[in-house]
Design a protein around this nucleic acid. Structure first.
Lengths: 158, 158
DNA sequence: CTGATATCATTTGCATACGAATGAATTTGA
DNA sequence: TCAAATTCATTCGTATGCAAATGATATCAG
C-alpha cells in the first residue's frame, strides 16, 4: 500500500529500482534507528531477567558511584549520560531504598553530594558479576571477534 | 573509591590485574548495554533535530502503515516492536492529530483496525526523505564499510 | 563592587516502555 | 458442543528520558 494507484511512471520507477537495488523504497526494519531501538529493548529485557530489582539506569548510578566515590548529582548525571531531571528521579528511588545517601556540599551550596551507603556498596559488589553475565548474554549472538568489532563501532556511534 | 582502605591483599590483586588485563575491574563505560543506551539516545536526538513534531515510535507507526496498509493495532505493534500498552498510546496521539484513523474489524470484534488518513499519508511521504538523512547522520561517524558491518552485527543482536 | 552570566537542582508536562490485571471475543480440544 | 485456553484491547502503576521554566547560588567582567 506504499504506492496506491500505480501509473506508467511508477512502472518505469520500478524498473529503475530493480536495477539500482530498490533505493526508492523505505524499509523501516533496515533503518539503524529502528534496529538500535530493538537491540536496546532486548538488552533491557536480558538485564531484567538477571537483575529484577534494579533497572539499568539505577545500576549505572551505583556502578559509577562505586567507581569514583562521592560526587554531585549533576556530575554523576554527566558520567552516566542522564540529564538533570532523569538523574534526580533515579537518585530519589535509590535513596528511598537506602542504597545511596545525599548531603549538601559544604562550600558550593547549590550542589547535592551523592554517595553509596554500606548497603549500596554491598549491593553493587553483589551485582557486578551478574552484569558480566548480562553483557555476555547480550553479545551471545556474535562470535568473539564480531563482538569486539561491534563494540568498537558502537562506541564510535555513541 | 571502588576499593577504599587499600590493604596488602588489594596490592596483590592489583598485580594480578596488571597481568591479566584488569579483568577484575568493572568499567561501566565499556559495557555493551551502557553504550547501546547512549547510541540510542544520540540517534533519538538526531531524529528530533530533523523531525521535531513526531517521535521515532510515531514515525515507525506511520511508516509501517504506509508500507503494509490497514492492520490491527496489535499486529502493528508486533511489526514495530511495541507492546500493546505502548502502541495504544502512540496510536491515540496519532489519531488525535488526524494522521491515522481507527475502525472496528467487521468479523473479529476484538480487533481495532488502524489506517493512515490522507493527511497521514501526505505526512509520511514528506518525512521519508528526512528519515534517510537521519540514518545518514546517525551513521556519519563510520565509513561506508564500517556502517555496513555495524548494521549487519546490530541486526544479529536485535 | 556589582550587574550579567553561568551552574546546579527542582518541577512540570509529555512521550515511550513494560508488567500485571481485566474484560470481551474467539478458537481450541476433549 | 461447550468449557478451557488464547487473543485483542484497555487500564493502572512504575520508571526512564527530555524540553522548558524556575529559583538559588556562584562566577565573571567591567
Amino acid at each position: 500500500m506504499g504506492r496506491p494507484q500505480m501509473s506508467g511512471e511508477d512502472n518505469l520507477l520500478r524498473l529503475v529500482e530493480a536495477e539500482d537495488g530498490d533505493e526508492n523504497n523505505y524499509h523501516l526494519q533496515d533503518q539503524v534507528g529502528f534496529i538500535l531501538r530493538k537491540a536496546h529493548q532486548r538488552h533491557v529485557s536480558i538485564f531484567a531477567s538477571h537483575i529484577g530489582d534494579l533497572t539499568p539506569p539505577q545500576f549505572a548510578a551505583l556502578a559509577k558511584l562505586y567507581d569514583i566515590g562521592e560526587t554531585s548529582q549533576n556530575q554523576l548525571g554527566t558520567l552516566i549520560a542522564m540529564d538533570a531531571a532523569t538523574v534526580k528521579g533515579v537518585i530519589d528511588r535509590l535513596k528511598a531504598r537506602g542504597l545511596v545517601e545525599v548531603s549538601k556540599h559544604e562550600v558550593d551550596k547549590r550542589r547535592l553530594l551523592v554517595n553509596l551507603t554500606p548497603e549500596g556498596r554491598q549491593a553493587i559488589e553483589r551485582l557486578i558479576p551478574l552484569a558480566r553475565a548480562i553483557t555476555e548474554e547480550t553479545l551471545a549472538p556474535l562470535t568473539a571477534k564480531e563482538a569486539a568489532t561491534f563494540l568498537r563501532l558502537l562506541a564510535k556511534l555513541a
